[in-house]
């Protein structure tokens, strides 16, 4: 019995020391909508710099709560500017590190080819359900609400709107055919499938996806620097985002 406990505690000690040995890796907390481009960016960054990265993705609200409760992330790439600003105000970030890394774009998508016109919303009488991300939770939902308000459709469509908890779930509602159409992130738009309207920028406030540094390290600074390089910006654009204007002061 005793030897069993000793063996177990030895194993635990070994496990703990292996876990802490990885602590010098760069740990990125990434909003779900950006997790695919973040993986490509991180892979390219690893090749360039030799630093190793680990990515945890989740909703911006959940990641925020984890960070406030001490989660060991080095950089937080959020889906909005609100949570990074809150962290900054709470003194949990490296001062001056908050910046916009990508501007999100919206698309109205249906899996049915030829249904959504390339120029705007189809007639409201033609669909039963319109999926958007929950405007209270997700920046893309907030922007979708703004578009519908600007088109004068928000009140009229109330009975038809279903809310996904994230932009990922919203996509699922449409992809499974349960909602005939909905607002998704342009980065989610499937190649050559169904029909879509790329929502013009002037119909909603830009979706500013911001990042903050949570710990100060050479690896974290190198990653922020990498995000401003031409190939990183190209990758961000190819993923369906507009790269942020490159006017941020360099971190000193």
């Amino acid at each position: 019995m005793l030897t069993g406990i000793r063996k177990l505690s030895a194993a635990m000690a070994l496990l703990l020391c292996c876990l802490t040995a990885q602590a010098d890796e760069l740990h990125l907390a990434v909003a779900s909508n950006f997790s695919a481009p973040a993986r490509s960016l991180a892979a390219a960054f690893e090749r360039h710099s030799g630093h190793r990265t680990v990515i945890s993705s989740g909703s911006t609200g959940k990641l925020y709560a984890q960070i406030v409760n001490g989660a060991p992330y080095d950089i937080f790439l959020a889906a909005d500017s609100r949570r990074p600003a809150l962290l900054e105000a709470g003194g949990r970030t490296v001062p001056g590190s908050r910046r916009t890394y990508a501007l999100g774009r919206l698309a109205v998508w249906s899996r049915e080819p030829g249904y959504v016109p390339a120029t705007g919303m189809p007639a409201a009488t033609s669909f039963g359900r319109l999926a958007i991300a929950n405007p209270e939770l997700a920046p893309y939902g907030d922007a979708a609400r703004e578009v519908l308000q600007n088109l004068g459709l928000w009140k009229q469509l109330q009975g038809k709107i279903v809310r996904g908890e994230s932009i990922g779930q919203t996509y699922q509602f449409i992809a499974s055919g349960n909602a005939r159409l909905g607002f998704i992130a342009r980065s989610q738009l499937p190649q050559q499938q169904g029909s879509a309207w790329l929502v013009p920028e002037q119909l909603h406030t830009p979706i500013q996806q911001q990042l903050v540094m949570l710990t100060d390290s050479a690896a974290a600074r190198a990653f922020l620097h990498y995000l401003q390089q031409a190939d990183a910006r190209r990758l961000i654009r190819q993923s369906g985002y507009n790269p942020a204007a490159n006017d941020h002061a360099q971190l000193r």
Binding site: L86, R129, N134, E136, L137, V162, R163, E165
Partner: peptide, 21 residues
């Protein structure tokens, strides 16, 4: 689909509150 008065149950409401801080 989180529709108030139809499909928005207690656990989903709690989830929303946590997500919106």
């Amino acid at each position: 689909g989180n529709i108030p008065g139809s499909t928005r149950v207690l656990s989903v409401a709690i989830y929303d509150h946590v997500e919106t801080l």
